[in-house]
Design a protein around this nucleic acid. Structure first.
Lengths: 256, 256
DNA sequence: ATTTGACTCTTACGTTACGTGACCCCTTTA
DNA sequence: TAAAGGGGTCACGTAACGTAAGAGTCAAAT
């Protein structure tokens, strides 16, 4: 059985020796054996395990979770890798979104146009959200808005699935809307893009952080707002815009 | 003029109060005024500035740089954005490599085939080059190697991107070859063909520029290494892999 | 046989962008 | 008038290592 020294393994895997020390310290990856003089020696198994660690790390799993994942006895390699691939692909899409934003910003700067803050923050700002929320408060009262927000933070899994389904329906409708829109092709493209974002936003699993919950709550809130539903009940592009904003926030939080 | 308390502003912008404290501490965003009782009060200007801060933060600028950006109106924004875009793009490329690796790994697990460690780590390892380089230095001397490398660093980014792309093509083809039966004559033929391509690539035909000639020199330097040629003169897959790795290595050094 | 040079170990403080108390002050409201 | 709900300043905790410092180990070269 082939053995690797700390440096050997580090070169092979593209990590620092310190990283290996660290992983040893926290019990994530211990060397196969320790020589008399305390040298770390790793074997093939450690090599494979390290690769798995790196994959998860690439997906921004904290090391603590990686320890749990790799210690789980029902750990299915192929399944894990396939979910990795999915996550990577969505990550790539997220990067594309950011690239678009940056490119727009660059071309804006190059054109020496002074861009307004609203344009600058398009896709980021909570500015879009806040006034809407304020009006919602005027209409429904603070307590209703806040209770709605709070209650939404306690959704069950079934409710979540339901919401997800509904959101996907909405996405479809939006897509149809875009085809009927009398506006320019650019608008259609934008809406199509939003549609994609929405699907991804509501379709991604494993989002349990606070931001996400907030957006989810706000999402339902806005859905209740008249301004986001037409007579026939189909949603307006503004709603998609909000979702896109939320999606962008989420995407960026994922990118780190 | 409207004033915001710390909590008020934090809610509006979606950041924590502690964050505002922190920004105050490091001089990134100071409140407009401080009341007698030391309360922080922010105005519209601070709101806007905070939005700008958040914008840059979304793009992963460290706070130190954000301070510079916002303090220096003549800061070269475009340059900063460009470099960030490049970073993102290289990130995307890495993801693509990883996707390939994962897919290969999956099919490998499914097919129960063993892949080599180097293939397993494709996309992570970057410094395989170093030992080879050291040996090259031993053989040919530091000055020759370094002069070759230095001339390499003068390549334009476009030239380099092109080079890298071609190298990746070569690498891909060779990798695909590795899936064929090793005994097959077809494989030998294919390798020979690739060898021709490589030779052509390194040949003088397409490159009359001085820099390119020196680049070729470095290539020949490495090609002269025993480990990259077999008895009959045909190259080993390791050579193409080395080229790919080297390109990646130098591309990185080019980027920063 | 020794010196060199690459490698190894442990220990421990530095880093980034805040989170999270602890403890105390100020203002509003029941 | 006292509780509630803000506000403030320390100051340590966090994640995932980076980066020396000081010292031992190992194989090759002198």
């Amino acid at each position: 059985m082939k053995k690797y020294s700390a440096k050997g393994l580090s070169k092979l895997a593209g990590v620092s020796v310190r990283t290996l020390h660290h992983y040893d310290e926290i019990g994530l990856l211990k060397p196969a054996i320790r020589t008399e003089s305390k040298y770390r020696l790793y074997g093939e198994n450690e090599l494979i395990k390290l690769q798995q660690i790196l994959f998860y790390k690439e997906l921004d799993f904290p090391l603590k979770e990686i320890i749990e994942i790799l210690n789980a006895p029902d750990f299915d390699l192929i399944k894990a890798f396939e979910s990795h691939r999915q996550a990577l692909e969505s990550k790539k899409e997220n990067i594309n979104v950011m690239l678009n934003t940056i490119e727009k910003t660059i071309s804006n700067l190059k054109g020496k146009k002074m861009i307004t803050n609203e344009e600058l923050f398009e896709g980021f700002a909570a500015e879009d959200v806040i006034p809407i929320r304020n009006e919602a408060i005027k209409k429904y009262g603070v307590e209703q808005v806040e209770s709605s927000e709070n209650s939404l933070k306690k959704l069950s899994k079934e409710q979540f699935a339901q919401l997800k389904k509904e959101q996907q329906e909405i996405g479809k409708n939006l897509f149809d809307l875009s085809h009927m829109s009398p506006e320019s092709e650019l608008v259609q493209l934008e809406i199509a893009r939003h549609y994609k974002n929405i699907r991804k936003f509501w379709g991604t699993d494993g989002m349990q952080d606070t931001q996400w919950k907030q957006y989810k709550g706000l999402g339902e809130l806005y859905m209740a707002d008249d301004r986001f539903s037409t007579v026939d009940g189909s949603p307006q592009p503004e709603f998609a815009k909000f979702l896109s904003t939320a999606m962008t926030h989420f995407a960026h939080s994922q990118l780190k």
